[in-house]
Design a protein around this nucleic acid. Structure first.
Lengths: 350, 350
DNA sequence: AGTGTTTATGCAAGCGTTTGCAAATATTGG
DNA sequence: CCAATATTTGCAAACGCTTGCATAAACACT
């Protein structure tokens, strides 16, 4: 007789839709939609009734439908190369925190498997249900950006400052960070300072090299090409280039690796040569990923506020979504030299 | 002056739809859909024409529409607590690899901000555009599972074996791994072996404790409650419990931490007490996350094949999606003791 | 040629929302 | 009390795609 308690009965398969809620609260589905979207002109009374019904029925919006119909999904996509570097994890954490605050969800895309299909991939994403996209890509994302700009899809670049595209972006003071680190080493008395580069296609790698070089110059220390070994931001390359540097006829007394991961590889290399840090050789890294304080000895490094970069990027993106006509912004956050135990003053040679 | 904005002109940059492709290739949109979905009965000739048109127009499927209409999105969701533990990263990597092979995309959800809203959260997900869900959740996911089972939504649990729910799941030999590690320590001559537990709400934590205990018993070593300190799988707790163990009147000569992260915390504690690993105390961890080989001394640990677990879970899920009536499966992968340098034979006390 | 099968293709009905437009109702000022 | 205005609500048309049903074309066979 009473139709109200067929809950358990009809709960089964079908999902609760806006229409069910409408029926249950005795209004049209449009009204329900308006209530759900916080539309202004709805009678308070109605609003309550709808909300209650929705709650009772366990209504959950169907995002696909919503975004198909032109609404926004409250999901933003994050495009990363992969999860195998905690550098990425840190950024994502920041992003996630900020998004959570704004009640957005996070959709994560990895690119490492898309080589050669970037364009198409990003199209799919932009075509999809995300309201915006954050890019932490491993190489200059020209292909991506073209597609994005073409549809003027909201997006923000993280840690890619050399892009001439007019996208919003956030990075950190790579040059200054490298300069500070190098100067620190110099102030400890080191003169032969090795350098392991990052993946030079990335702007950050170049900036760090420049910073290193500038510090040398400013202190009248000659820049010696043989003290610069190539790296690609991965641990393995740090190890390899470390060995190369250590095996030099006149090896450096300190080495600056363009990121922490490579500094770890370098540490391995140093141990393999039966040397120890920092007694025999000082090393400093870049990034300050979580492991850096765990390794032994704790690594002196240039802290890049990764999580904050993620946070800022997210905020920028959100603003851009809200106000599409806003001109792109560029934010550069300050790095900070974190002194731990991997550096020592140069011993006078006896 | 009144300038006419070119923008508004270009703005009509509509996305290419299935209909455009249909028009361009002179067939109906249904046919296009069939071609795109690999439907069997399409004339080869037609198929080619459609494919060409699609390519030429740069068509990209709209996933929302597709999945709204009942198709599948080729996206699977992964629900993780957060990205701040590389344990998670490893699993995701495996998942991602396997999904890439099957041409699926990965959508990542973090739960850490959803405390208390699990049910609703998972509903959103299952209601959304994912074809299936992988759960790597930090606590017993009762709430999640209820919702999932109710709609018989394809899902696989990772590393949660104590759930009585009939979901598919993959885990590893936690008990055996802990047993092996403990036995190894015993064989090195240790008798007072400390243990730092994991978050006991998790099945894996309990199994590891049991394995430790069993090994002790099998070697006629008494199980001493005071040698067991509580942990929660996070580094901080490893540090704290480590201190607790070290400060015992009769401290252990070896400590087994229920995961690597806690082992790192433990290492800190040991250094703080001016002891060294492995000379003064041997330690072993569990998981073998990437950092474990980097720390000094390299950590002896029980390797859990995290990436493979992810891969297997993904495969299980995909099979389940393809064949919904398949009974749930449970896969347990073998752990392996990785001997590095954090353990040493017990020195005879003089 | 006629009948029965296989293919191939098209039509139209959704899927669950949002939103412009219009109708209905309430509110206000005169 | 009426017209004018502001506030609420409903209807219907998308959004881009999948799919059941129907129709058409192609190919067997008698």
């Amino acid at each position: 007789m009473n139709e109200i308690d067929n809950d358990s009965f009809q709960k089964s398969h079908k999902n609760v839709t806006i229409i069910d809620v409408a029926r249950a609260s005795g209004v049209s589905y449009s009204t329900v939609s308006r209530v759900l979207n916080g539309y202004e002109f709805v009678k308070e009374d109605t609003r309550q009734r709808v909300l209650e019904a929705a709650e009772k029925l366990g209504y959950v919006a169907n995002l696909q439908a919503r975004s198909l119909a032109g609404g926004h999904s409250n999901i933003i996509g994050v495009l990363v190369p992969g999860l195998d570097n905690s550098y990425i994890g840190e950024i994502i954490r920041g992003v996630d925190e900020e998004l959570a605050r704004a009640n957005y969800d996070l959709m994560l895309y990895t690119t490492h498997r898309q080589r050669g299909h970037e364009q198409r991939y990003v199209n799919t994403i932009a075509n999809g249900l995300t309201d915006g996209l954050l890019l932490v890509v491993p190489e200059v994302p020209t292909d991506y950006l073209k597609a994005l700009s073409e549809k003027s899809f909201p997006h923000v670049l993280i840690d890619q400052s050399n892009v001439r595209d007019s996208s919003s972006m956030v990075d950190s003071t790579n040059w200054q960070g490298a300069y500070d680190a190098t100067r620190y080493l110099i102030e400890l008395g080191h003169r032969r300072i090795g350098f392991i580069t990052g993946m030079m296609e990335l702007s950050s790698a170049g900036e760090r090299l420049d910073g290193y070089r500038a510090a040398l110059t400013d202190h009248s220390i000659p820049f010696l090409p043989e003290l610069v070994a190539p790296g690609d931001f991965w641990q393995r390359s740090g190890h390899k280039s470390g060995l190369q540097l250590l095996d030099l006829p006149a090896p450096p007394t300190a080495i600056f690796a363009s990121n922490d991961l490579m500094a770890f590889g370098l540490m391995e290399a140093i141990r393999e040569r039966n040397l120890s840090v920092p007694e025999d050789i000082s090393i400093v890294g870049f990034d300050d990923i979580p492991q850096s304080s765990i390794v032994y000895p704790p690594l002196t490094t240039v802290r890049q506020p990764l999580d904050q970069m993620g946070r800022v990027a997210a905020r920028l993106l959100l603003e851009q979504i809200e106000n599409p006509d806003r001109p792109p912004r560029r934010v550069t956050l300050a790095t900070q030299l974190i002194i731990r135990e991997s550096c020592a003053a140069l011993k006078e040679r006896g």
